[in-house]
Design a binder for these strands. Structure first.
Lengths: 146, 146
DNA sequence: CTAGGAGCTGGAGCCGACTCCAGGTCAACC
DNA sequence: GGTTGACCTGGAGTCGGCTCCAGCTCCTAG
């Protein structure tokens, strides 16, 4: 059962050494992190996976206090899987919404970029631009300017 | 050519009144915002669309300084559409990556939630759990605990 | 045996993006 | 003509999430 130094965990997970210590202070770990004879942190595979999970949750916008709640549930042990399930599903729901919003925004941005592409391609860039639908910015004189 | 008060723009765009003033201080607007006789801000349809665009860009993680760059280009007027195009496409690219990462994280979260669902459904919750592939957290004794 | 590198602690600092305030002006309605 | 409510300004405060620092202890390689 191999063990990992904080630097190794950082390399393995992409989470910085400082952030790992910070997460520990913030009580995001399920169990107190073990130390070796010299007082250095020593992580097991469980911790590494846990950190990866934390990174995913953070990366999808879960605030630290919520991750702490999840850790608390896991720490409390068996018997609260329904709560853990609810927490994960609720978060998944939020992530689905994020994806939808992101995709919508991307489409709007892509549409605008396409517009520029068309303008550049047919040489009308820098010239008057007839009124266009929704996502275009006009200056009130029918001129698309952004 | 209707005009809008700051409160109306806020209602129309979902961007708070404070934030609108803040964006103005941060020079995110293409043109200085007009004022009515009493010194109150008066926005046109162009500004409203611009704010919407800013909200989209912000919502997809574009930092204020980059939005300011874009505003600067638009303000500079015709002749730099290639730069504007590059800026938008580059951002679109970043958003595509965000979507991909978000979807991947969502899948991992969903997989874990599914695992809990299965455990809850077949009544094995709270019992020993045989070793499972990647996204599962085990305590080193083959026990999935999180 | 010493120099370097990884780790340690507690605490301070930073950053981006708001958000909130006090204290004031105005316009409009009753 | 008073009171409400939207708006104004400049500046200060907040918040989340790191990130950095000084000054120290180890272990390892040369």
């Amino acid at each position: 059962m191999e063990r990992f130094s904080i630097g190794e965990v950082s390399a393995l997970t992409g989470v910085s050494v400082d952030t790992l210590r910070f997460y520990e202070r913030e009580a995001l770990f399920v169990h107190p992190v073990a130390r070796d004879a010299a007082g250095r942190r020593s992580y097991g595979t469980f911790e590494v996976e846990w950190v990866r999970m934390c990174a995913r949750l953070r990366g999808t916008g879960m605030p630290l206090p919520t991750i702490r709640e999840y850790a608390d549930l896991v720490r409390a042990g068996e018997g609260n899987e329904r709560e853990r399930y609810g927490l994960l599903r609720a978060h998944q729901q939020r992530v689905e919404e994020q994806v939808a919003e992101l995709v919508a925004a991307r489409d709007a941005i892509a549409a605008k970029a396409d517009l520029y592409a068309a303008r550049l391609a047919d040489g009308t860039a820098g010239q008057l631009w007839a009124g266009t639908p929704a996502p275009c910015l006009e200056d009130g004189r029918g001129r698309e300017v952004a």
